[in-house]
């Protein structure tokens, strides 16, 4: 196995493109090293992206927020401005694993691992996040919901690597939230999860995005759930109809972590609870 630690994104992309065997990107390694330990992955080349300066940046500007692909969960959580602007995205990322895992794990790694239960992904999709994808020849911008195509699968082409995630600029009265259900209080994979991002105008929900995790092969954006609360003050009826829309959008499986029935029911509960938190964060009151 070859280990490379390039210092530019382009160099990383070129290395990945040239490798004929199995090539893996190493950011935090909290998924890759587990796969290697379990014998599920035996890379011929590992490209460590942590030495690329552009991938270590957090930039908050007038046009939006840019988070490098190698920024760890701990660094996200320590960034007060980011936590204030996107509390849902930050708390979702901070839910990945223990403090030990937080020191290594990244949002982009969480995304590219392409697990339906990834914590940061529903929050990013609800936020309307975009990924900056760099290949050996070109760079492109892709919405986060178009990155993962199925369990363990992404739309990235050979040689392509995500350099950063951008979160859009929002109006003042906005808030986001992410909730997941796990049987323990920590150290678990989401059985079901929900991210909600909304903006208010005169106390009424003006725009909203609702995304669910662990209820389908990929995270699911639920426009009907958003519609259910747009134009409301998040009254009981609106919340009920959001919950119903969430449950209706579920297409889960029975597995060791939960049942179809359970995930479908709890998706609605979490969607409703996340919406209430996001609403409150946006300054809404009933």
């Amino acid at each position: 196995m070859r280990y490379e630690a390039p210092t530019t994104t382009k160099e990383a992309a070129t290395l990945l493109a040239k490798e004929n065997g199995e090539a893996c990107v190493l950011a935090g390694g909290t998924d890759l090293l587990v796969r290697m330990k379990m014998g599920l992955s035996e890379p011929d080349l590992i490209v460590d992206i942590k030495h690329i300066p552009a991938m270590q940046e957090i930039k908050i500007s007038a046009s939006g927020t840019k988070i490098g692909a190698a920024v760890s969960g701990t660094r996200l959580g320590d960034n007060k401005a980011l936590k204030k602007a996107w509390p849902g995205v930050v708390e979702a990322t901070n839910l990945i694993g223990s403090d030990q895992v937080q020191g290594r794990c990244t949002m982009v790694g969480n995304l590219c691992n392409a697990s339906p239960a990834a914590d940061s992904v529903p929050a990013m999709i609800a936020a309307g996040a975009k990924a900056v994808v760099v290949g050996p020849k070109k760079r492109r911008t892709v919405t986060v919901e178009n990155i993962v195509t199925g369990p363990g699968q992404t739309s990235l082409e050979k040689g392509e690597v995500i350099e950063s995630i951008t979160l859009p600029k929002r109006s003042g009265k906005s808030g986001d939230a992410y909730l997941r259900f796990i049987p323990r209080t920590e150290m678990d994979i989401a059985v079901v999860s929900a991210g909600v991002n909304l903006t208010l105008e005169k106390g009424v929900v003006k725009t909203a995005r609702v995304c669910l995790g662990a209820v389908a092969p990929t995270a699911v954006l639920v426009p009907d759930a958003a519609k259910a609360i747009i134009g409301t003050k998040l009254d009981k009826a609106a919340l009920e109809s959001l919950a119903a829309a969430c449950s209706a959008a579920c297409n889960p499986i029975d597995d060791k972590r939960g049942t179809v029935e359970y995930r479908t029911k709890v998706a609605g509960v979490l969607g409703r609870r996340a919406a209430e938190i996001a609403f409150k964060r946006a300054g809404g009151s009933k």
Binding site: G28, I46, T74, S98, Q100, R104
Partner: peptide, 11 residues
């Protein structure tokens, strides 16, 4: 930074 050394490569 606190980490699990089983999730870090020696290199």
């Amino acid at each position: 930074q606190l980490v699990c050394s089983c999730l870090v490569l020696g290199v």
